[in-house]
Design a protein around this nucleic acid. Structure first.
Lengths: 218, 218
DNA sequence: CTTTCTTCTGTGATATTGTCACGCAAATTG
DNA sequence: CAATTTGCGTGACAATATCACAGAAGAAAG
């Protein structure tokens, strides 16, 4: 997967701009679990996902987490380069959720490009707006959906991403994704199991009744 | 308050761009309580606050609310023109919280400007990033702060905005701002009163111990 | 100035979710 | 195989949300 395929605006760039991007971009392969960006501590630069999957989440002082969105093939992670926008006043953490291959584009290179290219600037706008939308969606979920609904939705989403009915995931991880406590997940999963929606085993959740889960998730 | 004073980038626009903006902008005065934008139902265009105060909030299906941010003099409200960005996938509602004077700039005019002016595009970026930051802040508050903390913070903020220690506000309104139920607000306020932090009367909350409220709000 | 109506507040009962404090069992390591 | 780590289960309790009222203060109507 080359850069051109990841940037839908590639065709609208000048030869010079393409050269700058191509010249500055560095390939990087990271194994599952790698921490790619840690709040305001670093400013690795723009990450472009060539393959694999990243997770963006918020970390509280006490170490609690909530996943705010995911990044897949061709997605661009701006917030690993949030230092280049002084108006971004929050910290996000990014980790590789699967073994991934990335392009890394230094923040200052992209910043210059944004400052000089209308196409890049407008495209960046689109990206931020898209992430913003995901966060708003999450907020509405957190505020107004009950936990069973959110859990059912999460399980279904995971099973789509994994392409399998049996999720290899611990209650702890699920809790971190949803921003709640492990016990809460355990209890709800047991309830789901008693209702025949899932089947549980150590480190795994098997979805046994997608239809009813779907209904729960609305 | 003219347009130039509201756009920090005014000096960086071409004469033509200024003329376009100036020609398209319409003054509008609205009384407190006016609904300026209602989800995806309309697309009034960009709102620029000449004076007064606006409130942006999210509305659930059941009619519950949370305030996500406010707009003051010189602030620009993009989301009343969110129709011009197809990546914005959420609905917010905007209302005048005080009698306000606005400039209204038609969405298509601004859209064209954004598509042709690097300065405008980058500035729009900044605005979105700023709003995004406010929403992220709110999310962290909702997720990880207890309700007494949030309430104390809200009361202090209100008293700054009103420039008074005695807030003319009902428990219902407070609940809508914070996205919770009226009873919850009532109970916490009673507790605050029993602790000597506030003094309550019908339709009003008087802050009697700012220091301890501040400490509560961290 | 009463009466009526509406808005705002208070409160108990109950449901849901979060927190704390454990204990146990399955894997993993030495 | 013993020791340790990791994941899960559970009861007790705290915080917040929901529901169902009831009463009180102010506004409107007569």
């Amino acid at each position: 997967m080359n850069l051109a395929e990841c940037f839908p605006i590639w065709d609208h760039l000048t030869d010079e701009e393409r050269a700058i991007l191509q010249g500055a971009a560095v390939k990087r392969a990271v194994p599952k679990g790698t921490l790619l960006h840690n709040g305001s501590a670093d400013c690795v630069g723009l990450l472009v996902v060539r393959s694999g999957q990243l997770r963006a989440f918020v970390l509280s002082d006490e170490g609690k987490e909530v996943t705010i969105y995911r990044l897949f093939e061709r997605d661009i992670c701006l917030f690993s380069a949030s230092c280049m926008m002084q108006n971004i006043q929050f910290d996000i953490t990014i980790e590789a959720e699967k073994d991934s291959e990335l392009w890394v584009i230094p923040a200052d290179v992209y910043k210059k490009l944004m400052a000089s290219s209308l196409v890049v600037s407008n495209y960046t706008n689109q990206i931020i707006a898209a992430r913003f939308s995901e966060v708003m969606w999450l907020m509405e979920q957190i505020m107004w959906k009950s936990f069973d609904t959110r859990l059912a939705g999460f399980l279904l989403e995971e099973s789509v991403l994994d392409g399998s009915d049996t999720l290899k995931i611990t209650h702890d991880k699920i809790a971190a994704h949803l921003g709640t406590a492990r016990e809460v997940v355990t209890r709800m999963l047991r309830y789901f199991q008693s209702e025949g929606l899932v089947s549980l085993s150590r480190g795994a959740v098997e979805l046994t009744d997608r239809k009813r889960l779907q209904k729960l998730a609305e």
